[in-house]
Design a binder for these strands. Structure first.
Lengths: 154, 154
DNA sequence: CATCTTCGTCAACCCGGTTGTCGAAAATAG
DNA sequence: CTATTTTCGACAACCGGGTTGACGAAGATG
């Protein structure tokens, strides 16, 4: 029953992908058909307190030029609004719209639902063990593990 | 010790990423600094028996236009050669160069090395359990789990 | 003040994908 | 044996998400 070395990464990627796909399937069903995985992370990075473009770039681990583009997209999709920063005339404040806050809340709920489903499927003990083991395999070296995932592949 | 629902996908992605990064770090050390993750999958898809552009596209689950580009890149990097198919004047045969075959062999060895390291770190039982659980979380619906990973994120 | 740094944008590019179109060659129908 | 349809692989144009480099405007610091 010993598996080849190349199988584990495939399993990890498959499981990750499955989860993200399912998340976005449910998000689409519930009023957020335009939200792409990359947007989800960006939305999370904007956060309920809002942020600036440069700070968004820092949080996502990408250049501020990339952050500018992402912010523009989120603005187009009506997930965030841009307002001038009263304290700094250079800066632009990105703030979640109600739609954006709803997406964040809904995502958290779906993630929890999925987590519960995994728990039912694997058992609480196995799931905890799986998470513990993955934690051990992924030392602290990865501060924001997903931030640069879109670009990292290249 | 209960984890939030959003943590598991982060752990999965982090672990996957860590493995692929480590693979390519070692590949780079051992004569393959130009090999990117996407190339690795393509190389695998070409295989030791070689294939055609269209078939490569099918194996990777992408359009043949995309396969054309990938084949061009692999050719540039001297991992494959292009020869006319004697049996079909339209087709182009993609064949691994010695360099390409070496990369494939080396990748397999590194994956096995990594697998052994995980086994030492988690214990054989835990690692098997982890693989079993991931298998359960990733039903057969994903035939080539990684094939379209680069593009899927968008 | 003068200088440096930071903010956000524009432009140009890369990479990996996508459609659409196309000529050439093969397979299939009559 | 010809006529049609399918397949092969390339072209061009585009997209999404990244990158660097340059830049004016505004803040921070000497």
């Amino acid at each position: 029953m010993d598996r080849h070395g190349y199988e584990l990464p495939l399993l990890l990627a498959g499981a990750f992908r499955r989860i993200i796909d399912e998340l976005h399937r449910r998000l689409a069903e519930q009023g957020h058909p335009d939200l792409r995985p990359a947007h989800g992370f960006a939305l999370q990075a904007v956060g309920r307190d809002g942020t600036t473009v440069s700070e968004l770039g820092r949080r996502l681990g990408v250049s501020k030029q990339a952050a500018t583009k992402t912010a523009a997209k989120l603005t187009d999709l009506r997930y965030v609004t841009r307002t001038p920063d009263p304290a700094d005339a250079r800066a632009v404040l990105l703030t979640l719209t109600p739609h954006g806050r709803a997406a964040l809340t809904l995502s958290a709920r779906i993630f929890d639902d999925l987590h519960t489903e995994w728990k039912q499927s694997l058992g609480a003990t196995r799931l905890s063990a799986l998470e513990d083991d993955l934690t051990k395999l992924t030392p602290s070296s990865t501060p924001t593990p997903l931030a640069d995932l879109p670009g990292w592949f290249h």
